[in-house]
Nucleic acid binder design. Structure first.
Length: 435
RNA sequence: GGAGAUGUCGCGUAGUUGGUCGAGCGCGCACGAUUGGAAAUCGUGUAUACCCCAAAAGGGUAUCGAGAGUUCGAAUCUCUCCAUCUCCGCCA
């Protein structure tokens, strides 16, 4: 969300930005919001004046009532003043209603006007125009066939999709045995990796209030992603980012405590509305998964440095696990409205002969901070909005797909990279279950 | 889940027969004076958001857990909700 003052003063920049994101249908929103803002301010000004006169008149009543104790004739005078205040009450109520209507519509529009993208973001209409920036590690394709990931898991008796379907429906999974252990090992390693980078480990609430949801994501995302608890003002989180950024709602953050570097674990729940292709079967796209996340809240001038550091952490983690990856930069049209800049870290799939998304690193600028009213009090006493960033550390079971495909050997075994062995009971290799 | 108590400016408190209370006092903090320096002492200041103003200065509005109501006027009265504490119940 942008600052309404910025929109008021720079309508052309805002419109240009909308065009860059190929959202021309939103162009009229800019003029509409500026007009509403002017009306709203006029209403506020008039209402403030009415309230000011009400306050002074009411004080007069108080004084007159006091005097009336000695001089009953003052009572009449007081009644006159009362009537005067009452006369203004109607207009004030009218204005208050207007203010409310304007504010609601302005907020609605502002929520839909996209954040200003970073000048470095490549311009393009959709994900087909995303730009590969750099590859890390050699994308190896072995001689032997790499089966679909659920098949690999099944060879270890490591997954039961049928049972999950019966119990919870499509989009759920049972992980079992070594595969389940591998899942936990990856999370534990990812956690410790981030702790070693100086991040603070957090376990947040897995359900959050509606106003927090609205603060951290756009309305459309909310409808298509979030599960609501029936009869309660609670939503299951889609990522721990929601509770971790929400942690700062309405808070004034001391400047000395910046940057806040946090790494959080949580299960994530997503509706995943809409149809998905055949490559999204298995545990690729599911209603529930677990994720280790990194969150940074920092001074505005430091956010781009953190952005660079954060996606590099993801690369380092995947390289430690001996998985080839690449950095794919999101183009303007594929960038969510709240984001200033974003990239995906994609892992190599030897089966599909292509890279697929395993991490998503985003700089949200001050958009979340403005929505959530999180502010920093500077050394000079002035308030400003911090920048917020988030990035995936590891999100199994999806990342297990990359793991299994890249570590599967010709004999059907799976090698465990050095860094994960302490979390796997020292094992260097997993051997498939006997048929 | 049941019963009771509480919720005021960074912290601690005053304020509950509604009216100079946006709010007193103490602590803390900032600046200044005093001092060779420090402590102590004294003085001054000490919220946030928004509106008006070209800007500054200045003025105004709102905010005493949140929301709604009564009233000319509410920190003070009524209702709803939330949070905290104590006791009971239940439970990983």
């Amino acid at each position: 969300m942008l600052d309404i003052r910025f929109v008021r003063e720079n309508p052309e920049i805002v419109k240009e930005n909308i065009k860059k994101k190929f959202q021309d249908h939103k162009l009229p929103m800019v003029d509409e919001v500026i007009e509403l803002d002017a009306k709203n301010r006029a209403a506020i000004t008039e209402a403030s004046e009415l309230r000011a006169s009400r306050n002074t008149l009411s004080k007069q009543v108080g004084m007159l009532m006091g005097q009336a104790k000695k001089d009953p004739s003052k009572l009449e005078e007081a009644e006159k003043v009362k009537a005067q205040v009452k006369a203004n009450a109607e207009r004030l109520a009218e204005l208050e209603k207007l203010e409310e209507e304007y504010a609601a519509r302005i907020r609605e529009l502002m929520m839909n006007i996209p954040n200003i993208i970073d000048p470095s973001v490549p311009i393009g209409p959709d994900d087909s125009a995303n730009v590969e920036v750099e590859r890390f590690g050699e994308a190896v394709t072995p001689e032997y066939d790499i089966p679909y990931h659920t098949q690999i898991m099944e060879s270890f008796n490591g997954v039961d999709m049928d049972a999950a379907g019966r119990v919870s429906g499509n989009g759920f999974y049972y992980l079992m045995g070594d595969i389940a252990r591998l899942h936990s090992a990856v999370l534990a390693y990812a956690r410790d990796f981030m702790i070693d980078k100086g991040f603070i480990y957090c376990i947040p609430p897995f359900m959050i209030h509606g106003n927090v949801v609205e603060g951290v994501m756009s309305q459309t995302d909310m409808d298509s992603m979030m599960y609501k608890i029936e009869g309660e003002d609670l939503y299951l989180i889609g990522t721990s980012e929601h509770s971790m950024i929400g942690k700062f709602i309405d808070q004034i953050i001391p400047e000395q405590s910046l940057p806040q570097t946090l790494t959080s674990y949580s299960p994530c729940f997503r509706k995943e509305k809409g149809a998905h292709g055949i490559e999204e079967r298995g545990v690729y796209r599911i209603h529930q998964f677990e994720k280790q996340e990194m969150i940074v809240v920092c001074k505005p001038e430091e956010s781009m440095d953190w952005y660079e550091k954060m996606w590099r952490y993801s690369v380092e983690l995947f390289r430690n696990m001996e998985i080839p990856v690449r950095q794919l930069e999101c183009c303007s049209g594929d960038l969510a409205d709240l984001k200033v800049k974003s990239c995906d870290i994609e892992a190599w799939s030897p089966r599909q002969q292509k890279y697929f998304e395993v991490c998503s690193c985003s700089n949200l600028g001050d958009a979340q901070a403005r929505r959530l009213k999180m502010r920093v009090k500077g050394e000079d006493g002035k308030m400003y909005l911090p920048h917020t960033l988030n990035n995936t550390v590891a999100a199994p079971p999806r990342m297990l797909i990359a793991f299994l495909e890249n570590h599967l050997q010709a004999d059907g075994s799976v090698t465990i990279p050095e860094c994960l062995r302490p979390y796997m009971g020292g094992k260097a290799v997993l051997t498939p279950a006997a048929k």
